[in-house]
Nucleic acid binder design. Structure first.
Lengths: 129, 129, 129, 129
DNA sequence: GTGGTCTAGACCACA
DNA sequence: GTGGTCTAGACCACT
């Protein structure tokens, strides 16, 4: 469960993406309790302050809610989660296509390269089954 | 020719991507001279030191060569440019697919969402014709 | 601990060599923390930016790792350090022999002149005991 | 006869070393005429100004003499040439030993590594015979 | 005019 | 307190 952190980007952001991933994949569902700040800190091996910041940011985006003395929970608002998933996808697709086009790749090339990469991923994935 | 800089990421990196874009789109070809540090600085409205750093980083990656008293040039090595283009594509595709899968999107969804976004972009593009 | 800087060569390079020397002599070992940018700057009497550049270059060569908010550390990879030591030696020996041969010195002359110089150094060293 | 220039060091210095090498190897002897600035410039592919500077520096060090309208000549003073050879050797040996010791290599290691490198060079050299 | 280096001083995000 | 980035302005060597 250790995460490979990219030292060039804020750890709290990468940790956010990690939790958002879990929520978007429905590993963490509406209302579920997140592990405590300390637990997470130990588990992923970062400073508790950093985890705390992660939780604060997610709360600011209304994806989680912290209840004093009880812990931090995924929002009950399923609509919110669906939106998170959609926004996330759109943001990444948009950024991806923008940068690819800016680098002179056309639609055909982009689709082809993605297909190719997906085949590689699928092959690698199967080996681990 | 003005660039919209994202305040959250280093300017020198964004400037690198700008030039790499030009090279990948073959707007700047092997052996071409880049504008001087000072010219670029004025043009994009940043400090010459920042441009200098951009050029240095690109030189470290062997995409450009700086010659004292002469200027900075795109590498003569066409192979290097092709690699740049491939590496760029692979890096972005990889990161994109990783994050999408991490967020629980499967192949079909990913391909579909990209197609949808491409249609929107094309429609937007045509309006400008 | 003050360093005599050669005015004709970049300070940041000489500072790199200074730290590489410490690492090759095992005064700084794998995982050790380097003094902070600001500390080093004060100690050797140069601008923090210059020290920063030194640390950046060493990080680029994977000899040290900078961790935001924590400091800069010698790599944990002992293999890397051994390689640094070997590369350093090879680089200097190679350059030295190349230039000596280019100046028309043969093997015997080179070995003899080194022996002679080593005797002088040893004599000088003993005087300081 | 093309020279591999290290872009990080002044070309005029590298060109000086090239000529000093020829003189120390007695390929250019006392009183010999150097090729004209233009000839050299064309031959090694650098700006005539750069060659001009090289010749000026060598004249400043009294190793060559330029005679107006006639060209540039190696000094007639054989003593000067011998000193050049010795000074060159001493300078390089001194710098070399200093840096090796600074990097924690002891006498035995240094001598051994040089012997090893010389064997490699000799083997490589023979292949070209 | 060109890139390379350095200083001084500032601000920021991270831990 | 830590490194990272940026600006402003300066000087230098090379072409």
């Amino acid at each position: 469960m250790t995460i490979q952190f990219d030292q060039n980007r804020p750890i709290y952001l990468q940790l956010m993406e990690y939790f958002y991933g879990k929520i978007c994949r429905f590993e963490l569902e509406a209302g579920d309790k997140l592990p405590s700040v300390r637990e997470t800190a130990v588990e992923v091996g970062v400073n508790p302050n950093t985890v705390s910041r992660t939780y604060m940011e997610m709360e600011r985006e209304k994806v989680v809610i912290s209840k004093r003395g009880q812990g931090t929970f995924v929002t009950e608002d399923q609509q919110m989660i669906n939106e998170l998933r959609e926004r996330t996808a759109e943001k990444h697709i948009d950024a991806f296509l923008t940068v690819m086009i800016q680098n002179g790749f056309n639609e055909e090339e982009i689709m082809e390269l993605i297909q190719k990469q997906l085949r590689i991923i699928n092959k690698g994935g199967r080996e681990n089954e």
